[in-house]
């Protein structure tokens, strides 16, 4: 049994075919093989949320999925969310509220925030905080992130 396998998937709208080591997780594949360094590795055990990205329409932990499992999948990273304009409003709100400092949690935080907003989440601060409970940010204190998301939901952002 080969420890390498071929995968074909769509990443940020582009078709990608590659041969990957079966043990490589999805984030390492995106970062190292495709140069999509926007997704970050924070803990590699699924707790910090830094690697959160979209696979087949669902936000998942990129470190808890093998690259080979993404064969046939549609993957969207923080770069793709920006390029397509899908994250325009949330990014504008994050900048306006200073909802990021070092920016390391931001790709995962944006993914989780976008999942909440796109699912029709309310501007209720506790509900926003609960939804973000799996995304660690060491810098901000979270309040600005909550406010940025709330701003987007309330339509208070010009993107």
């Amino acid at each position: 049994m080969s420890k390498m396998q071929s995968v074909s998937l769509t990443v940020n709208g582009e078709a990608v075919t590659a041969t990957v080591s079966v043990r490589k997780h999805l984030v390492d594949f995106l970062r190292e093989d495709l140069g999509l360094t926007g997704s970050h590795v924070g803990c590699e055990h699924g707790v910090c949320g830094a690697c959160t990205l979209e696979v087949n329409g669902a936000m998942v932990r990129g470190c808890l999925m093998l690259a080979v499992q993404a064969d046939g999948a549609t993957v969207t990273t923080v770069e793709g969310l920006a390029d397509s304009g899908r994250s325009d409003a949330i990014r504008a709100a994050f900048a306006e509220r200073n909802a990021l400092q070092c920016g390391y949690c931001t790709p995962g935080m944006l993914a989780s925030a976008l999942e909440y907003v796109e699912a029709g989440g309310t501007a209720d601060r506790d509900a926003i905080r609960a939804h973000l409970s799996g995304n660690y940010c060491r810098c901000t204190g979270y309040q600005s992130i909550v406010e940025a998301i709330s701003d987007v939901i309330s339509g208070e952002v010009d993107a």
């Binding site: 949320g49 669902a58 998942v60 409970s133 799996g134 995304n135």
Partner: peptide, 12 residues
């Protein structure tokens, strides 16, 4: 269910 881990974990 809402008490089990976090949304991204529940998605998988």
């Amino acid at each position: 269910l809402p008490y089990i881990a976090h949304p991204a974990i529940r998605n998988r």
